[in-house]
Amino acid sequence: MSMGNLVGYAAWFAGVCLGVAMLLAGWRMIRGPAAEDRVLGLDALYVNGLAILLVFGIRVASGAWFEVALLIALFGFTGSVALAKFLLRGEVIEP
């Protein structure tokens, strides 16, 4: 087994772990029970999603995934904060 293969297998393993983690987070998002749980599930879902993109970047040896991961991090954060703020105050942008 060459060393490049070793990294390939490890990246495959990490990808499977992250995929299962995304399924679990998605289950929490759909199942609830409280609205906070759904927001938390969505938050975990996008963090795991950007991690999966980074691992894909290693597997296909390309840097293009990185920009996508960065954008998911920024937009995901905005979305989660807006949802959490709405749950807290019933309004996203207060006058």
Binding site: F13, A21, L24, A44, N48, A51
Partner: peptide, 15 residues
């Protein structure tokens, strides 16, 4: 890679 995958999986299991 293995450690990162496992840690994330355990965290999601906690979820």
């Amino acid at each position: 890679l293995v450690a990162g995958g496992l840690l994330t999986l355990v965290g999601a299991l906690g979820l």
